[in-house]
Deep mutational scan, measured.
Amino acid sequence: MASQGTKRSYEQMETDGERQNATEIRASVGKMIDGIGRFYIQMCTELKLSDYEGRLIQNSLTIERMVLSAFDERRNKYLEEHPSAGKDPKKTGGPIYKRVDRKWMRELVLYDKEEIRRIWRQANNGDDATAGLTHMMIWHSNLNDTTYQRTRALVRTGMDPRMCSLMQGSTLPRRSGAAGAAVKGVGTMVMELIRMIKRGINDRNFWRGENGRKTRSAYERMCNILKGKFQTAAQRAMMDQVRESRNPGNAEIEDLIFLARSALILRGSVAHKSCLPACVYGPAVASGYDFEKEGYSLVGIDPFKLLQNSQVYSLIRPNENPAHKSQLVWMACNSAAFEDLRVLSFIRGTKVSPRGKLSTRGVQIASNENMDAMESSTLELRSRYWAIRTRSGGNTNQQRASAGQISVQPAFSVQRNLPFDKPTIMAAFTGNTEGRTSDMRAEIIRMMEGAKPEEMSFQGRGVFELSDERAANPIVPSFDMSNEGSYFFGDNAEEYDN
C-alpha cells in the first residue's frame, strides 16, 4: 500500500510504541512475548500442572481467558453494579484439565481477579502490559475465525453469508486497541457500523446529549479505520460520505453494504499476525530463551520457528480426527482463516481442507461434555516452508469459486491468482447506482469489472525454506488448481455463540 510509510507498523501498534527502528520493534515485541511466557509459567505453578498438562491447549485457553477477564475493567465495573446470582464479580476462573488415573478430569478453578492481575503485572515488570493482553485477544479471535462461520451475524446486519472472507476479527472485544483495529476485516468494521446506525434509528437519543457526542466521535473513528483499509480513492470518498452524514440511517447502511461487497474484489488491507497460545510461549521462556534479547516478529519467520520446536497437546472428542484438529489450530496460529487453501497447503506441506470436510468441533470443551471418553493427542503445528504475512489485500483475480465463501483475504505475501467468483459478486451490483453516491458507485463498479483474471497478485513473492531466515531465496510455489480455494466452501461450520 502506498501510504505504508505514514502508518505505524503493526509491531508498533502491538507494543504501543512511538516510531521505533526494526531492532527496537523486535525487542519490544519480544518483551511482550516474554511477559506472556513468564505469566503462563507462574500460572502453571499456581495450578500445580504437570509439564504435559501445561502444554494442553484447553488449559492455555482457560488461563488466557482468566487474565483477560481480570483486566476487563468495563465488564468488571458492570458486574459490580449489576450483581447477578451466583456470579462473584471479583473472581474469575474456568475449567482446568488434569490427568488422573490414566483419565482426563475437569476441575473448575476460581481465583481472585486481583490475584491474577498481581501475577500478570509481576510477570511483566510491574506494568499492565496491555500489548500482551491484546495479543491474547487476537489469538482467540484468530481461533474463532478458523472455527466458526459468522453466517447468522452477517444475515442479521443485512449482509450476504458468502462475504465471510471479510469477517476477520469479528469476535475481537471493543477494547483491543490499535492492534485489534489493524486485524479487523472490512466486513467486521461494516458490521460494527451498521449495528451502531441501527441503534440510532431505533433509539432517538442515541446521537443526542453528552453521551451522543461520545457516540458520534466513536462512529467517526470507526469510519476512519474502515476508510484506511480501502485502497481505492472511490471507496475512500464513499467512506467520507458515510462519516460526514448528519443523521446516519438506511442510506448509510446501503452504502456500507455496497462497500463491503466491493471489497470482495477491490480488497481492503487487513493486517495478519501470528499470535500463538500462551502454552507455546511459556515452555520456550522456561527453556531459557530470551525473546527480548533475541527479538521477535509476528509477521516473519519467528512464529514458524517457534511452532517448529513446540509440543502442544489437545483434548480430542471420541469421533474427532486429531489431524483435522491440528489443521484448525495451525490455521489459527498463522492467522489464515480466509487465505486461499492452495497457498496454505503449499506452505504447510500437507493438504489443507475446507472447514466442512474437517471432523472436528471447536477447541474448547463445553462444561456439560462427558470427560470419560476424552483422549488427548499432539497437535501437528509444523510447516514445510515459511512466508511473510501481508497486510495488503493483493490485486484481484477471477477463479472458480464456491457456493460458500466467494473470495479470499490473503494472509501471506505469496504470488498467486486470487480466487473470487466474479459473476456471483457482480450480480449483486445491478441497477442500484442512484442517489448521492452514484458517481462513486459507478466508478467502483467500473474498477471491479476491469479486474483481470490473468493478473498475478504479489508478483514474484515466494515462500522460503525454514533454514532461509533472511528470506534470501524465494520459492514461487505451484498450486494444484483442481483443489478448492475457499475454506468455508459450501460450508456447515458451527455458528459462533458468545
Rank of each mutant, 00 (worst) to 15 (best):
459 Q>T: 04
342 R>V: 01
34 D>Q: 02
405 Q>F: 10
76 N>P: 03
445 I>V: 01
69 S>W: 10
357 K>Q: 08
365 I>C: 12
174 R>I: 14
388 I>M: 15
151 T>D: 07
94 G>K: 05
79 L>D: 04
182 A>F: 03
348 R>G: 15
381 L>W: 07
398 Q>E: 13
174 R>C: 06
51 D>G: 00
384 R>F: 04
209 G>S: 13
80 E>K: 01
458 F>E: 10
232 T>H: 15
110 L>N: 10
62 T>F: 09
17 G>V: 13
468 D>R: 10
148 Y>M: 06
176 S>I: 04
19 R>C: 14
291 F>C: 08
445 I>S: 03
100 V>Q: 07
404 G>S: 06
141 S>I: 14
281 Y>L: 09
332 A>T: 15
186 V>P: 00
223 C>Y: 15
340 D>Q: 04
212 G>I: 05
192 E>K: 02
438 S>T: 06
194 I>T: 13
179 A>D: 13
437 T>N: 14
476 V>H: 12
147 T>F: 10
323 A>I: 00
96 I>A: 03
216 R>W: 04
209 G>A: 13
380 E>N: 10
382 R>Q: 06
43 M>K: 02
14 E>S: 00
460 G>D: 06
30 G>K: 09
183 V>R: 04
225 I>W: 12
50 S>Y: 01
7 K>N: 07
401 A>M: 08
346 F>T: 01
348 R>Q: 12
276 L>Y: 12
250 N>S: 09
303 P>F: 13
354 P>Y: 05
326 S>P: 11
391 R>F: 08
347 I>A: 02
42 Q>M: 05
181 A>N: 00
341 L>H: 08
137 M>C: 13
249 G>R: 05
173 P>S: 03
447 M>S: 01
306 L>N: 08
6 T>V: 11
309 N>Y: 05
324 H>Q: 02
219 Y>H: 06
219 Y>S: 14
5 G>C: 01
40 Y>F: 02
475 I>F: 12
185 G>T: 03
8 R>M: 11
242 V>P: 05
478 S>Q: 05
34 D>P: 09
452 K>M: 01
12 Q>R: 00
322 P>M: 07
443 E>K: 04
281 Y>M: 09
27 A>W: 01
170 S>L: 14
21 N>A: 07
303 P>M: 10
86 G>S: 03
333 C>F: 03
416 R>G: 14
319 N>K: 02
197 I>P: 08
50 S>K: 01
337 A>Q: 11
405 Q>R: 06
470 R>V: 11
136 M>L: 14
228 G>Q: 07
342 R>N: 07
68 L>C: 06
495 E>N: 01
277 P>E: 10
190 V>A: 13
225 I>S: 01
412 F>P: 09
142 N>P: 06
193 L>R: 07
344 L>S: 05
98 K>G: 13
130 T>M: 00
24 E>V: 02
64 E>L: 03
76 N>W: 00
351 K>T: 02
443 E>V: 06
377 S>H: 03
289 Y>Q: 04
76 N>Q: 04
112 D>C: 15
430 T>G: 00
168 Q>W: 07
42 Q>Y: 07
210 E>W: 08
302 D>W: 05
493 A>R: 14
383 S>L: 12
473 N>R: 00
220 E>F: 11
390 T>N: 01
424 T>D: 01
402 S>C: 03
317 R>N: 11
209 G>Y: 11
477 P>S: 14
107 E>M: 10
259 L>V: 13
383 S>N: 08
42 Q>C: 08
203 D>C: 10
337 A>H: 08
407 S>I: 01
340 D>W: 11
199 R>K: 13
21 N>P: 14
57 I>M: 06
139 W>L: 12
207 W>T: 07
344 L>V: 06
183 V>G: 06
27 A>M: 05
73 E>N: 13
228 G>F: 08
319 N>W: 07
240 D>A: 12
362 G>K: 11
